[in-house]
């Protein structure tokens, strides 16, 4: 191989090698291999001795140009490397991250989800029903006779003589039983409407969860057990509770469930209106008249039902003092949950 070919080959080799050298170490290795006193370029200069004297000026010129070229490429690379490296150090890692919007589930949904998940784990399914109901499903089938004073407790929005906005999620119980034979074990969350004056304590729209379990041999004792395990899972196992007899047209016997006030521990405070207890749930054994209206055998089957207001639970739980905040959807409020 003549000298010119060797020079061309070395240049090509150096270029490839330099291109691959990206670290401080590999750049140093490159310098030693090509540009050091015993490097490849120096070795070629040494070979000058072996060629004919008349060729030496030309080859010398080529060799000098080779050395200059490699040196300049190397210098350029070093300069770039130092610059890059220097630049790394100047990144201010304290700059904030590129943010994005963070969404939230409405606190009412969050509360409902939590209630749902507890009952689902106890073997309850989930069912839905319409918000526009007829008188039959909202009242009559639930053992509210026409012109009965029990209807007074449910200030109703009417759409026509027969149609209304459901005043509770209980009509879904009727719809579920109309469609399914026992056993039935289901919860029914949803929106309900009451024509009540709007204030910090009450709003004309709110949310309830109804529950229903019907089978052969379902007892009041099981109703108590189910409600207690819900209460303990939702409020913690140290919560105290009491079942108080009450009246609902669609259950008998019926009970209101109270828990010890979690703010004052039962000593009495503003939250519990000084009596130490908070009413959180209504429940009872399904009234035989309800079974009759859906065609269930009321001798063969027994069942229990319960209902709770989600707003009330959320208000108590988060210490919110105005129910209207739930429907204003101010993101300063929503972001707190």
């Amino acid at each position: 191989m003549d000298m010119k070919s060797k020079i061309d080959a070395l240049l090509k080799e150096a270029e490839t090698s330099l291109a691959q050298a990206t670290s401080r170490e590999s750049l140093e290795a490159f310098r030693i291999r090509f540009l050091a006193r015993k490097g490849s370029v120096a070795t070629l200069f040494d070979e000058m001795k072996t060629i004919a004297p008349e060729e030496r000026p030309t080859v010398g010129k080529l060799l000098n140009s080779l050395r200059a070229q490699i040196q300049s490429s190397f210098d350029g690379k070093i300069k770039q490397f130092v610059q890059d490296h220097h630049h790394d150090k100047r990144i201010d890692l304290t700059l904030p991250g590129r943010s994005r919007f963070v969404g939230t589930k409405h606190p009412i949904t969050q509360t409902a989800d939590e209630i749902k998940s507890i009952f689902v784990s106890m073997g309850f399914g989930v069912a839905d029903g319409p918000e526009i109901e007829d008188d039959y499903h909202n009242f009559e089938a639930l053992n509210f006779p026409p012109d009965h004073p029990a209807r007074d407790s449910q200030d109703t929005f009417f759409l026509s003589k027969n149609l209304l906005l459901r005043t509770h999620t209980t009509p879904v119980q009727i719809r579920v039983m109309e469609e399914h034979q026992p056993p039935v074990r289901v919860i029914m969350p949803g929106k309900v409407y009451r024509n009540e004056a709007i204030s910090a304590r009450s709003y004309c729209v709110f949310h309830q969860v109804d529950g229903l379990y019907v089978d052969e041999g379902v007892t009041f004792s099981e109703l108590k057990g189910t409600m207690i395990s819900f209460i303990k899972r939702f409020y913690g196992s140290s919560v105290r509770y009491k079942f108080r007899p009450t009246f609902f047209p669609f259950t008998e016997p019926s009970a209101d469930i109270y828990i010890s006030c979690f703010l004052c521990g039962g000593k009495g405070c503003r939250l519990c209106k000084q009596n130490g207890w908070l009413e959180i749930l209504g429940c009872g054994m399904v009234d035989p008249n309800v079974f009759r209206s859906v065609g269930y055998d009321d001798e063969k089957y027994t069942g229990f039902a319960f209902g709770l207001g989600i707003e009330r639970i959320a208000l108590l739980r988060y210490g919110i003092d105005d129910i209207r905040l739930f429907y204003e959807n101010d993101i300063r409020f929503l972001n707190q949950f």
Binding site: F101, G103, T104, I108, C204, V205, F326, L334, N335
Partner: peptide
């Protein structure tokens, strides 16, 4: 996806 869920009065 960064949305806030709202619940509005249906009337």
């Amino acid at each position: 996806a960064g949305f806030h869920e709202t619940i509005c009065n249906p009337m």
